[in-house]
Amino acid sequence: MNLQNILSEIEKVDADVYERIDHVSRRHVFHNFLKKAAAGIAPVAFGAVLNKAYGQGMATVVDVLNFALTLEYLEAEFYNRALSSSLVMGNEGQMTFQQIALHENAHVALLRSALGGAAISKPNFDFTAKGSFPDVFSNYRTFLAVSQALEDTGVRAYKGQAGRLIPFPDVLKTALQIHSVEALHAAKVRYLNGNKGWITGNTGFPGAVYAGEDNTSQGGASVNGLGGIGFGPASEAYDEPLSKEAVLAIATPFLA
């Protein structure tokens, strides 16, 4: 996925994309601009130009991908710092978090390359969350608790944005491929925390990360008792989305 792909996505939805762009920039000029943007030397914000040219469609893709990038920056730096700190995590922890860090850094690179000049910069982070987790990089239990919260939030965040990407099938597919990897991570970290890999009801810490996970109304039907499956496993069987606002409220304390 790259800028050119995003454009061809738009072209699928709106065959007139180049005509729309024409009033901002002639086609060849625009292509030239794209090349520069892809090379990371775009003089103007890519998103701003495309928004003017195209409106909501492009704005949606840029908004969703930058939202995802914010979370991936957060996760990647969290693991990078932990792995380079004196935190004692043992062999299993090392194996686990090196693999997770590999993926989170790859997600950052992928999203940055897709967004090109429209990519937001990496914010500064405070992983103590304003003092809530003062020993996050010196106490493995604290680290695991924060890791679990970040991974479970990540799963919910991607799920909450998927619907906005329906008109952009290639972007949606990539987002889903990241989403499922966050869930692999979440389950392993939950296991290290002594929890089940799946979320029962709305139990978990902090509460905001698990709010609404006890929902058993799926596709307009109640799954509580469906097929003889009671509330606990029925709630576990479906992960719930979180709105962008709810995710940002969870993430904001980690911004320095």
């Binding site: 799963v155 991607y158 889903l176 989403h179 799946w198 479906y238 992960d239």
Partner: peptide, 8 residues
Amino acid sequence: GKIVSVEA
């Protein structure tokens, strides 16, 4: 989406 992450 709710189901695939549980499968993961």
